[in-house]
Structure formats: structure tokens, C-alpha cells
Design a binder for these strands. Sequence first.
DNA 1: TAGTGGTCTAGACCACATC
DNA 2: ATGTGGTCTAGACCACTAG
Lengths: 255, 255
Amino acid sequence: MVPSEPGSDRQPLHIVISEQLKQKIEAGDYSLGERLPSEFDLGEMFGVSRTTIRKAISNLLQQGLVTTQRGKGSFVSGRRKISFSMASPLTHFDMALQEQGYVGHIRSLGFAAIPPPAEAAQMLQISQDSKIYRQEKIIYADNVPIALEIDYFPETVGAPLAEPLHQGFTYSTLTANGIHLNGGNVSLESIPATYELSELLSVPLGLPLLVFNFVVYWGDRQPAVCGKVLSRSDWTCYTSEMADLDPGEARHTKL
Amino acid sequence: MVPSEPGSDRQPLHIVISEQLKQKIEAGDYSLGERLPSEFDLGEMFGVSRTTIRKAISNLLQQGLVTTQRGKGSFVSGRRKISFSMASPLTHFDMALQEQGYVGHIRSLGFAAIPPPAEAAQMLQISQDSKIYRQEKIIYADNVPIALEIDYFPETVGAPLAEPLHQGFTYSTLTANGIHLNGGNVSLESIPATYELSELLSVPLGLPLLVFNFVVYWGDRQPAVCGKVLSRSDWTCYTSEMADLDPGEARHTKL
DNA sequence: TAGTGGTCTAGACCACATC
DNA sequence: ATGTGGTCTAGACCACTAG
């Protein structure tokens, strides 16, 4: 199976090959979860070196179409996405997971009182001398790590709730302890996974991550928590509903 | 400059090298826009083959830290992001660009009446027999392609406004012609750039793209347009403001 | 033990940019 | 003409998975 006549195509071989494999995957010739032929075999099938095949498979990896496992092979990936509402931010991750048929749990990577980073101090409206509680945790759905959550709590919230916050989902813990959130500012962006993040979330380096930045308030606009959730883009999306659009209003909210 | 003592590190060479280069970039040793040493020189500096250096630079590419130009070199990238409000969706892209100091323009890739795709027909609440107008265009900021917008208009909107829609920004054109949007459903996700998208937006294959899915209404909840905006994650982010959070409400909006 | 993907080498040729 | 990144080869060794 030689790619095509050499005269007409201007595409690199690894692109031609990865696009052909992509078509086969999308056509169902290689079905979901199925193992692709080995790199050696693919090299023979296309009549190219293993290096070129590896580059082609790397293209599919970057596009999230396959995953690779050392010693086993390359497998067609594909899964449905878990959707979270932007209207209830960090909020109810556990409920959203449960409603959509997943078992959620968290693994804490650390909970400590630290001097506040400048950015967090500003969002929580506290001075640089006061303490701040920083929590970092991985969120799992069916034992797959799907997100890294980083929270900053002001001392008034973090100190009395240190223990429950350390162990449970943020929103549920807050509401269970009488802190009812009533507003916030959020922003969404996307970044490629750094090496460190790729290790934490078991994804290839560079895979898109959704970054949900938030600061939420309770009572009389007291900041309750701020931070960010970095979630695997192959597992998550965010939804929102709008009403009464007014072009001049609510634009360029600074977070 | 040999990486480190061989006994202790378990990281591949290309990771060690790309992480070292990353540190230098973030420390400012290589400043913004500066050219890195050539692959050949880097190979000599680290005492490894060019293949390994290319893999290391590929890691930086995937993380959006550098860009490469054939015949010229590799350059440190880095730019601020343009923020769009989720409260006014497709909406005022041109104004948002202008307010943030960019010159915006569009290039149409096509505008045609077609039989409606099933998904679009459902969102626009029309039957499969009626016609639909599909528009595809690239959005530029300062002559850099930052987004691909795909719109579907029902015949009642698309037919009379074919000409102006073809040439201008969507929201501005609609409001200028008496169609005032007053609500909508949106969702945000992120996907890696496919080969085709990477060509259209001049980004490396696999770079994260933000996908803004929308359907917006006017008058008495008549769908005016639906579609999606795929924007370069290194140039764009979305912001939103919330009030009166109610945990049970507005969750899992289906788009 | 055999097969797989992960790493790395040394070298070749090409297309493009610059002088 | 020279230097750059982009493509591709042929081959080696390693780490891991499996029967």
C-alpha cells in the first residue's frame, strides 16, 4: 500500500499517512478501543521507515485520536465529554459527575497556609500580610484523572474548615458548612499541557487543557474562594445560558 | 554543557533539554521574540544529536513557547490574550477587538444556501426540507488569523441579509439590520487543531483551540443564528459574570 | 522469549531565507 | 553560497507487556 503517485502531492509523507489513518478511524475501519497495527507493520504497509510512522502516529496523538501504551500498542481513543455548568462553577463537580453516571473522587496534593501570592491576595481582597490557604487536588471520574483544581481560601474560611476542605469537593464542603455562594466572576481559556501537567493528568505533552478561573462570593460580597480548575479537554466542556443580552453590558469582566 | 550526571535522572534527554530551555525562556535568558541557537548549535551545546534537539524543540512548540520558521530559526513566542465576553457571544467580535487595540477584519471562505445538517436544523428549529445559509470565515486581529467562525442562518435571516452578512462581522450586521438578539445557549470546549485547522489558522498541529458553540435568539425566541467559533487558545479567552447562584438551576444546558 | 512502543544516533537531501 | 528548519532513512538499544 504505497501512499500515492509522487508527482502530485506536496504533503509530507507523515501527514499523508496520519490523514489516511485518521480517515480509517473515522470510517470505523479501526473501531473504538481497537489496536492499530504495530509501528513495524505500519512501516511495511506504507513502505516507509519506522521514524516516519512514529511521526504520523505522533500527529494522531496530538489530535487526541489515539493513545499509546509502551509494550502493548497504539489504540483508538474516543469518549464522550462531561459537561459542567458555568453558572455553578467549581461547584458541584461531584454532583455533575454523579448525574452523568461517573464515580467521582479527589486526591489531595497538599493543603497548607502560605503567604498569599499577589494575584490571589488581590482577588480575595486581603492584605499581603494575612495568611491564605492553598489547596491542590486531582479530580477523578471513574478513576481517570480529569482535572487539577487549585483553590485559595481566605483565613476566615480556610482556618475553621481546613479538615473537611482537605478531604472533600470544594463546593459541597462549603455549603454543608453554611457558606452559601451568591455570585462570582469567571473566565475560561485553554492552554497546552506542560510536562508537569501532562504527568499529573496522564496526558500527552501539549494536549489542550481547559482552564476555568474563578472567584466566588458569599454573604455581602465577601470572597469565599478563588483559584482555577485545569481539566482535560478530551473529557470536559462547559455550558451556559444567557438571557436579555445587552451589547453594552458586562463586557470585559476583569478577573 | 552536558545535562547532568547519568545516575540519578530518569527523564528522557529531550525532556531534560526542553525543560532547561523552558527555564531559560521563563527566566528571560532568551527574551521575547529572540531567536534560539540553531538546532545544530544546540546539539553541540548539549552534546546530543540533532534528532534529540528537534524532539526537545517540538516539546516547546506543543506548549506554545516557541514558533519555528523554516530557513530562519526558532523564536520565543509570547503575547497577551484577547478576551471576549460570554454574555455577548459571536457578537461584537469587532468591537472587542477594537477596544483592546487591535485592527479586526474578516475573510469569507464561503457563503451558500445548503440543505441543513441535522444538528443545525434542530438548533434552528426548522424542518429538514427548508434551506439554510452556511457561512465560514476567518477572523483576523492585526492581520493574524485568530479564529474560524462557522454560522448557520435560517432562510428568513440569511436570504435578505446575504450580501452584508457575507462581508461583515455577524453581530454588527444583524443589529444594523434590525435583528436584536435577546438570549441564547452557549458552550465552551477545547480541541486540538487538526491538520486542516492548523493550516487555516497558521498554528502547529495539535495546538489547543477554544470552541465556542452558540445558538442565539431574537424577538419571541426565534433562532437567529447558530454555529461555532474556533479560536486560537494562545490569543483568546472568554469571561463571564454571575450573580445569585442557585445550585439547582440552569445546570446541564443542552446546546 | 518475543513483540511492542520510547529513546537516540549519524547522516542525507530538501525548501526556504539571507547576504 | 551559506545557514536554517523540515523530512526521511537505517539501525541500535532500552523498558515494558505478554504468553
